[in-house]
């Protein structure tokens, strides 16, 4: 029975396998922000040349990426929700968590800025004005790192946006790109990571209104999935990737990625302890 399954499985793989597939590879579950900003397209070829290990990136929200890791369907994770990452490690699914890089979130809104938040640096104050004005606000609503950050900021502002659900507070349950598309169409405010924003093409009337608050820091971490629950996980290759991206070569590659001369991610890996 098992053998028959194997044969069928091999057959299916063979049927559709592209010629260029690497022998050695890891599956990296990551976030739409890193994929869609173009970062991976810039740094992964450097890693592949150095190590001979291919990296297959599945781009999801941070919450989903962590779930993929929990199921053992990825070998490593590159995500941006520290609290959720620490929970993942505490539950014994993998780790240890290593810092990789940061960029920042920006509060975006229509150029007409009905809530008059442009010019503030205080993101909590800006959110209070949006809520007071009941100006449309698009939330990812998808348990992603950006969604988690947004909820944290509302808490800082002392506002429960769920009160406005279905009216001005619009949870779309989708990725950063669709959220930006929705906000552009509805002239709404939203929180975005800077990388996706810089690579985003359909801006229409949207612009960055609030940035630079230290609470807008967006920290990325990397984790290996533990082989203890899922023996199929590629520990060695995953560790090679983590060592590289937190090491000098990987950090330099991250620092070297720019869109229109603007650096998107700032490496800040802590030395391994």
């Amino acid at each position: 029975m098992v053998r028959r399954h194997l044969v069928l499985g091999l057959l299916l793989t063979g049927l559709a396998l592209p010629a260029a597939a690497q022998e050695r590879f890891i599956t990296l579950a990551s976030t739409t922000s890193t994929e869609q900003s173009g970062l991976f397209g810039h740094i992964l070829p450097v890693f592949i040349r150095a190590s001979g290990i291919g990296v297959r990136v599945v781009a999801l929200g941070t919450g989903q990426a962590l779930d993929v890791g929990r199921r053992g369907d990825a070998d490593a994770l590159l995500v941006h929700d520290r609290a959720a990452e620490e929970r993942f490690v505490a539950e014994g699914y993998g780790g240890p968590r290593r810092r990789v890089m940061y960029n920042d979130f920006v509060l975006i809104g229509p150029a007409s800025d009905p809530a008059r938040i442009a010019g503030t640096r205080d993101v909590a104050e800006a959110l209070r004005r949006v809520a007071a004005r009941q100006a449309p606000f698009v939330s990812r609503g998808d348990r992603s790192g950006t969604h988690a950050a947004e909820l944290r900021l509302w808490q800082e502002a002392g506002i429960d946006p769920v009160q406005g659900r279905g009216q001005w507070y619009r949870e779309i349950g989708q990725g950063m790109g669709p959220a930006l598309n929705t906000a552009a169409a509805q002239e709404a405010y939203l929180l975005s990571d800077r990388g996706t924003w810089l690579a985003f093409r359909n801006r229409q009337a949207l612009k960055v209104l609030v940035e630079g608050d230290e609470r807008l820091l967006n920290q990325y971490g990397v984790l290996a999935v533990s082989p203890q629950r899922h023996p199929g996980v590629k520990v060695k290759e995953a560790q090679a990737f983590i060592d590289w991206i937190t090491g000098a070569a990987g950090q330099a590659a991250i620092a070297g990625y720019r869109i229109n001369g603007e650096q998107l991610f700032f490496p800040n890996a802590a030395p391994p302890n």
Binding site: H5, L6, G9, L12, T13, L15, A16, L17, P18, T27, R56, V58, R71, G72, D73, H230, G232, V233
Partner: peptide
């Protein structure tokens, strides 16, 4: 096809084979 699923040992998730299925 998930590694936590009954056919996880096929290693087909996130491959073209999985899409074919």
């Amino acid at each position: 096809l998930s590694r936590s699923g009954p056919l996880g040992h096929w290693g087909l998730l996130f491959t073209p084979g999985a899409m074919v299925i």
